[in-house]
Computed example of a mutant assay.
Amino acid sequence: MDELVVNLEEVIENVKQFNMDLEENTDIVTQLTQFKHWYYIPSLDAFGPSKYIGYKAMNTSRYARGQNKTGVDTEKVLKQWFIKLSLESERSSILLDKLGELLELHDKKVRSNAFVHILKN
């Protein structure tokens, strides 16, 4: 079983890796429409999905199309550093648009029921 992240630095490294995997057009691109909970790191100006960034030392091959991984577990651990934005908030709308632009580069769309989480403080 994959280990969950234990500190914010691991999350940040995973977000960086996720975005490198996107740039390299790895298999993760085919799964972009499946992700519901997206996490945004302002200092990186980058997003990462819960089920990918919530496990230690993640990359596309370790992600293995999400086998034996659950967003329920990652949501629990990630909420110590992040808050979920209300869908009605202006910030949520802006970030969902930004995420949509990122996914469009790969001919994908954001799920209609997606949420964005941002760092606390």
Rank of each mutant, 00 (worst) to 15 (best):
N7G: 02
N7P: 03
N7W: 01
L8S: 00
E9K: 12
E9S: 12
E9Y: 03
E9T: 09
E9H: 03
E10R: 01
E10N: 01
E10L: 00
E10Q: 13
E10V: 01
E10H: 00
E10G: 03
V11L: 06
V11F: 07
V11G: 06
I12L: 09
I12N: 05
I12P: 08
I12F: 09
I12H: 06
E13R: 13
E13D: 13
E13I: 00
E13Y: 10
N14V: 09
N14M: 10
N14S: 09
N14L: 07
V15D: 09
V15E: 06
V15T: 12
V15M: 07
V15S: 10
K16T: 10
K16L: 11
K16E: 12
K16F: 04
Q17L: 09
Q17M: 13
Q17Y: 05
Q17V: 12
Q17G: 08
Q17K: 14
Q17T: 14
F18C: 04
F18E: 07
F18N: 05
F18S: 01
F18R: 04
F18L: 06
F18H: 06
F18P: 04
F18K: 05
N19M: 02
N19H: 02
M20K: 14
M20F: 11
M20H: 11
M20G: 00
M20D: 12
M20I: 14
D21P: 02
D21H: 00
D21F: 02
D21A: 04
L22C: 01
L22Q: 04
L22Y: 01
L22A: 01
L22K: 02
E23D: 12
E23H: 01
E23A: 11
E23S: 11
E23L: 10
E24I: 00
E24G: 05
E24T: 10
E24P: 00
N25M: 04
T26G: 08
T26P: 07
T26D: 05
D27I: 11
D27P: 03
D27F: 08
I28K: 04
I28P: 05
I28C: 07
I28Y: 03
I28M: 07
V29S: 10
V29I: 13
V29C: 11
V29Q: 09
T30V: 12
T30W: 14
Q31M: 14
Q31K: 14
Q31C: 14
L32G: 08
L32N: 07
L32Y: 06
L32H: 08
T33M: 13
T33C: 11
T33I: 13
Q34A: 15
Q34W: 15
Q34G: 15
Q34S: 15
Q34K: 15
F35M: 11
F35P: 09
F35L: 11
F35W: 14
K36R: 15
K36D: 12
K36S: 12
K36V: 15
H37E: 15
H37S: 15
H37F: 15
H37Y: 15
H37T: 13
H37W: 14
H37K: 14
W38V: 05
W38C: 03
Y39H: 14
Y39C: 08
Y40S: 06
I41G: 05
I41Q: 09
I41C: 09
I41T: 07
P42H: 08
P42S: 13
P42I: 03
P42R: 11
P42D: 13
P42C: 10
S43H: 10
S43Q: 12
S43F: 09
L44V: 07
D45S: 12
D45W: 03
D45I: 08
A46P: 03
A46E: 08
A46H: 01
A46V: 00
A46M: 10
F47L: 04
